[in-house]
Structures are given as C-alpha cells and as structure tokens.
Design a binder for these strands. Structure first.
Length: 438
RNA sequence: GUGGCUAUAGUUUAGUGGUAAAACUCCAGUUUGUGGCACUGGUGUCGAGGGUUCAAUUCCCUCUAGCCACCCCA
C-alpha cells in the first residue's frame, strides 16, 4: 500500500491547483474566436468598413433568426442550403425560425419592412456577421462562419453589378491577397432562362440514365444546376450542353455586355465561366465567384437577384450583391503568407511597487484615459521583474515605473524600453510628457 | 447524410498492458527596485463514458470533436 498514499496526495494536489477540464466542447463546426484570431478578424472588418465608406455602402444588420419561410421562399426550396442545411428553432407558439444560412433575404426583408426605399434608393448596404449552415465541417467549411458582403437594392443598372465586384476585390486588395480571380457568368432573366432551361432539358432528355443520382433529381427540380455538377460521370455531357450565353434575350445580352464593359473600363481581370450557376434559387443575370491563388475554395461569391423581392411578396425590386467568407479570406491570407503586424495597441506599461503606488497608479490610468493614451498594467503581479518582463512582451515603447520612493517624491520613472534609459518625471507632468513622445 | 483516418501539457509532437516524455509557450524563482539572454523549478486525472484485465493512456465498444473524400458551398 505505500504506493497508494502518494497517489492520493498527488491527486488532491492536482485538483487543488486547478487545470481540470470542463466536460464541454464547442458545438460541432462552431469555433471560439480567440484574441489571436482577432488580429485577422479586425483587419477584415476594418477593410469592409473602409471600402464601404469609399463606395457609399451603409451598415445594416438583421437578426440572426428569421421566419423559416423567408429562406424557403427567398433562398429557395430547391437550394441545398434550404433543403438540408438550416438550423431551425421552434418558438413557444407554433412558429419556426431559422438561423440565417445567408444574409440576402434578411437584408431585402429589412429594406422593405423599414421603408428604406424612401430613405436610400437605390439602397446600398454592407453587413458583417455570422451565418449558420448544418453541414459536415471540413477545412474552410463550418457550421457557424462569418460573412461580409454588399447589397445594392432597387436598381438593375449594370454599373452596380460591376461596382459590387469591384468593391469585393477592393476588400481582397486591402487584405493584401494576391491574384484573386473573378469567375463570371450570366444566367439570364425570367424569359430567356425559361427558353434556355427548355433547351437544356431537351438536351438531357434522353441522357438521364447516364447522370449521377443528384443530377437525375436536378433534371426535374432545378435543371440549371446540372451545369454545376462535379461528378466525373456527368462531365462529358456537361461539356456538350448548351450554354446560357447563346440563349440570352436582347436585354440580358446588353446588360451582360455592359457589366463586362464596366469591368474592362476598370481594368478588372475576369474569367467567363459558362458553367457557373450558383446554388441559390433567386439569382438572375450576373453571377460570380472569387478565387484566390493557392486556395481551392471560393472566398466569395454573389450575383443579381432581380426577382427576390417579388418572390417574398414584396414590390418589384431588382438588386445585386456579394458575400465573402471571412474564415476563408483568413485562410487565404495564411496560405499566401500575408504579414500581420503584431504591434501593440498600448503606448506604455504601468509598473507599480507597493500598495500606495498601486492606488496612485489606478488614478494615473484614469488620467491617461482622459488623454486618449492606452496604457497597459498588470496589477496581479508583485515583482518589478515580472512586470517588466510583461512590458517587454507587450512590445510597448515605454514603461512607467511607480514605486514607494516615487510616490513619496511625486515623480514617476519613464523608461525607454529600447534604449533602457530612464528619467524621473514629475507625476503631474507625465501625461503631457508621454503625449509629447508618442 | 455516407465512407475513411485521428484524439497524449496552451502549441507541435514522442512513448508504453504496470498511471508518461521533449521542444516551444506560460507561471514562479536565480537574495537587496529594472525586461530581452542564461539557469532552476512548476502547471497534465493521455477527448468523454463503458467493457476486457490483477492492472488500460495503451486492447474492444459507444459517444463527442477534428481532419479527409463524397455532397455542397463562403
């Protein structure tokens, strides 16, 4: 039994010293955003705010939850997202809400519900927030992820299709992402699409036996998506399939041409991809996706949705928008080795010794707050050494050292962390002195 | 939703049927009030639950999560 005794001791000691894990994990595919992650997240939020300011997009935020019908009717019953990727919530009544799987229907709803047509028309908005999709998580694919995006509501002007693309590219540029490619296509309007789909169905009519199971289903439910199939089996048929470009009506042709001209004018490189159709039911005319070099998933995408408002029971309201995956842009930045500066937000680090100094230090922080100078401290540490160590780690330029002696003499030591030199500054003048130096 | 692989300190990884190791990080200290370097020490119930066994971190099962493929997308 001599073995058992130290064992028991060891265990209680461990428990007392903490370190036990709680029996919970974050839900599948949902992740904590940790301070280190915000090095990236903040940068992206800053980027979209900057771009929005210059291109005239105002911030709009909608609830995380919406009536499930908004997505069923808007995003569309035949879309994968609605068919199997929505998180739903039963209300205490008999309603069903869904965690938004995408932003656009909510934005359209908000625009009309709040009468924003009378405030800004066309309405130009940007958003930034989490969306939810019940999927099998994988690299670059999560159940909760963040999107930033733009919408232009109530205009069918091709200039806005181009502006949405250009503004999205500006975000990538702000993030220093290199070699981003826009893939672009048009899927026509109500009229020409009907003719095209008819042609497409005719083409596939006698070939359904050669299609994969999903495509067989697509054939009846959403034939346009046949073009989207990645199954090898379907590729030969896809390659020969009629293309939307050949079936556009005059208006759609002119619109697409105009979009391309605006892009050419801005010297925006793009690739026309006749198989690009996208997974949401509401798209019409322009559709596009963004790819960064060295990243195998799209970092963003979007398109025009001229009938969404009507589909939702609203007024006729053509619109166009784009959305970018925040985690995917971050992944792209990491893959492309984009350098993130780790410079401290703090200008100085306050070091105290003794209770008197701690109290005085608290007051001093308030002075710095009023002067708009962020100063970091560590009141939980006692020794000068460990506080200086932290100051060093924080990479601040100055340490402010306040000990018993200094409190008594009403001064504070201003230490230059780079040179290691320091001088005593009267306590009353330290705020002004630091302000002068930074 | 289907199939495969994986799970050991904060991180990246060793390792074993007899309750564990390295590097980096973190915390503390290396005597008097001065950081980066160096040195010393500390922090883990080996993802969770169950089973087999004298004994399981190790073998088996279930669950959970991560990764990969399908699917789909941001």
């Amino acid at each position: 039994m001599p073995i058992k005794i130290p064992q028991a001791k060891k265990k209680t000691e461990k428990k007392a010293s903490g370190g036990r894990k709680i029996p919970f994990q974050s839900p599948k595919g949902m992740h904590d955003r940790l301070p280190a992650d915000f090095l990236y997240f903040d940068k992206i939020e800053k980027a979209i705010k900057k771009v929005s300011l210059f291109y005239g997009f105002d911030r709009l935020e909608t609830p995380l939850l919406e009536d499930i019908k908004l997505f069923e009717r808007g995003t569309g019953l035949t879309s994968e997202i609605v068919q199997k990727q929505m998180f739903t919530v039963k209300t205490k009544g008999d309603g069903v809400l869904a965690l938004r799987p995408e932003m656009t229907p909510g934005v359209v709803r908000a625009y009309i519900e709040n009468g924003l047509q009378y405030v800004s028309n066309p309405g130009k908005f940007f958003y930034c927030g989490p969306v939810f999709r019940y999927e099998q998580p994988q690299h670059g694919r999560f159940r909760q992820f963040y999107q930033v995006g733009f919408e232009v509501l109530n205009s069918d002007d091709a200039a806005y299709d181009a502006q949405i693309i250009i503004a999205s590219l500006k975000i990538f540029e702000e993030l220093k992402l290199k070699n981003v490619v826009v893939k672009l296509n048009t899927i026509g309007c109500k009229n020409c699409r009907a003719a095209y789909v008819k042609k497409l169905k005719e083409y596939y009519k006698n070939k359904t036996g050669d299609l994969c199971r999903d495509c067989a289903k697509r054939y009846t439910e959403n034939p346009l998506r046949l073009l989207d199939c990645k199954q090898e089996k379907c590729q030969p048929l896809k390659a020969q399939a009629p293309q939307t470009l050949d079936f556009l009506c005059a208006a759609c042709k002119a619109h697409f041409k105009s979009v391309l001209e605006y892009l050419d004018g801005g010297q925006i490189p793009y690739l026309i991809d006749a198989t690009l159709v996208r997974g949401l039911d509401y798209y019409s005319r322009s559709v596009f996706e963004f790819f960064a070099e060295g990243v195998d998933f799209a970092i963003g995408g979007g398109g025009r949705y001229d009938y969404l408002s009507e589909t939702l029971g609203g007024p006729k309201m053509p619109a166009v928008g784009s959305a970018c995956g925040v985690e995917r842009m971050i992944e792209a930045m990491k893959l492309q080795d984009v350098h993130i500066s780790s410079k401290s937000a703090y200008k100085a680090f306050l070091i105290y010794m003794g209770d008197q100094a701690k109290k005085q230090g608290m007051l001093l922080l308030d002075e710095f707050y009023k002067a708009g100078i962020p100063v970091k401290e560590s009141f939980a540490k006692e020794s000068l050494k460990s506080q200086l160590r932290l100051a060093d780690k924080e990479k601040v330029d100055y340490a402010l050292i306040l000990g018993q002696r200094e409190v008594f003499e009403e001064v504070i030591l201003l230490r230059d962390m780079k040179s290691g030199t320091q001088e005593a500054i009267p306590l009353k003048k330290i705020v002004a002195e630091l302000k002068k130096r930074i």
